[in-house]
Amino acid sequence: MKKQTKDHLVFWLFLAPALISFVVVVIIPFFMGLYYSMTDWTAVADSTPVWVGLENYKSMFSDFAFKYSFIRTFLFSVLSVISINLVALTFAFLVTREIRFKNFYRAGFFIPNLIGGLVLGYIWQFIFKSVVPSIGALLGIDFIENLLLLADPNLTLFGLIFAFTWQYAGYIMMIYVAALLNVPQELLEASEIDGANFWQKLISITIPMIAQAFTITSFLTLVSSFKQYDIIVALTNGGPTDLYQGQVVNSSELLAMHIYNVAFKYNNMAEGQARAIIFFLVLSVVSIAQVYYNKKKEVEM
């Protein structure tokens, strides 16, 4: 009995630092945020927030800009997840083969991840605005010369996805590399003897064997594309504007940026907070569903 109490004490003692900081920086702000999202708070000093109930949530769902941003974010996330994972997996396959300089390639593909999103965004802005057209001019191909990804509201999302993939695929590749190196060579050999060709080996053996990596990578890519902010600020800052169903919209203003703008640019703190809460809920549901689904597909060893 005595020993048990002591064990309990030690347990809580060790847990306390982590628990307290978690409560202080995550849990309390979250509930404060929840409270503020139901007031008309503007962060102006001396003004006491007035309780408005679900007013902010109502206005959010009738706000066209929010709905538009939401759809664009979904589109961006889905396409990014696909593109990043495809690129990362392909590179991972290439750098796990018996090739020369494979460590050099691995490092090379990984480096963009070390460059901050803002810097990277400005680099790609330069590339999209100046380098691509001048290459087009040099080659004499009009299509490329006139290709201004970032200026066309219909294409700007692809510009973002391109830059984001360039930044993030190397990181995801590393996870795939680790997973691929863990696939027992014997299994691939056994399947080869069983008569499998390259694609059959890939689909029947390799992919199921790295299912665990898929859980991690799709979670990481999904969450980070949902929350993407800095690359967009540097690349397009939300623009260019477009007419959508008769309304003026910012074609690359994704949710994170939208919330920032509402809260800080237009100074509607409470409204921004309400949107952030919804953002949080949607992201949680989507990522939990994704992890649950992928977990089910993982191989039990």
Binding site: P184, E186, L187, E189, A190, S191, E192, I193, D194, G195, A196, N197, S204, I205, P208, M209, A211, V299, E300, M301
Partner: peptide, 29 residues
Amino acid sequence: SPKDRNIAMVFQNYALYPHMSVYDNMAFG
């Protein structure tokens, strides 16, 4: 290539496909 030699091999560590049932392991080839 191995797949065209019409041979079968039993590996020292068996190399069974861990994500397939015994039935599917046998049915794979």
